[in-house]
Design a protein around this nucleic acid. Structure first.
Lengths: 116, 116
DNA sequence: TTACGTGCAAAAAATTTGCAGTTTC
DNA sequence: GAAACTGCAAATTTTTTGCACGTAA
């Protein structure tokens, strides 16, 4: 599964998979996503539910990133921050909590939409 | 709606509401939640889907807090951090993004469960 | 009136499950 | 052959919608 492009929901992944093998079923997609999620190989997002109640998935990379969803134009942008890393380390030490997955999603207005 | 207690899902809110007025319908709950969400009066969480695919709601207070969900015992804990506030300010200035809502959820192992 | 909020019933969207047949080791 | 994976069909769960009615400004 080449989840190279990001932020795909289960239906999109199904369609992509069926382009390679038309017999692939929805349940296989969901079962595989569950597996990958448990292994920590993908991250699950909901992008502030701007486009409905579904979930989106992306390959987990070394560096976590923040997702920002524009409430007006729907654009999704990403941001990597040392402060985010610092925050996670603070949670781990202050709360004695071993972090496995983390997700920071922000809804608001992007630069372009603020100007209108 | 006394969402005093937190992290209630739509079904729980419906049951609570029906205790006061038995005729309340599911759709009213969902419509009200949509409204409150748009007004920024409540926050929507999914608590890392530890207990299923639903969503949880809580009154939005002055200070945002981080939610941590223990993948073993299911306990949800909360944490307030200045670093989180700093991170949000960084996003606003570095990305020129006007934040309306933000949500940081973390999955991992709580102090007690790490020791087992 | 005109807009709004509601219950009701039905639909739609998202995800899960049981089962039987294959493949894999 | 046991364990794991799959497609298929059907079921569940979660959320939304159309509609008719009542209410409030």
């Amino acid at each position: 599964m080449e989840m190279a492009k990001k932020h795909l929901d289960a239906a999109q992944l199904l369609r992509k998979a069926q382009r390679l093998d038309a017999s692939v079923d929805r349940s296989t997609v969901y079962r595989t996503l569950q597996l990958l999620k448990r292994q920590g190989l993908i991250d699950e997002l909901d992008l502030m539910h701007i486009h409905g109640e579904g979930h989106y998935y992306e390959r987990k990379l070394n560096r976590d990133h923040i997702h920002m969803a524009c409430l007006r134009c729907g654009k999704i942008s990403e941001f990597v921050s040392d402060v985010f890393e610092k925050l996670k380390r603070q949670v781990e030490s202050d709360c004695r909590f071993r972090i496995v997955v983390s997700r920071l999603e922000i809804g608001g207005y992007c630069n372009a939409c603020q100007k209108r």
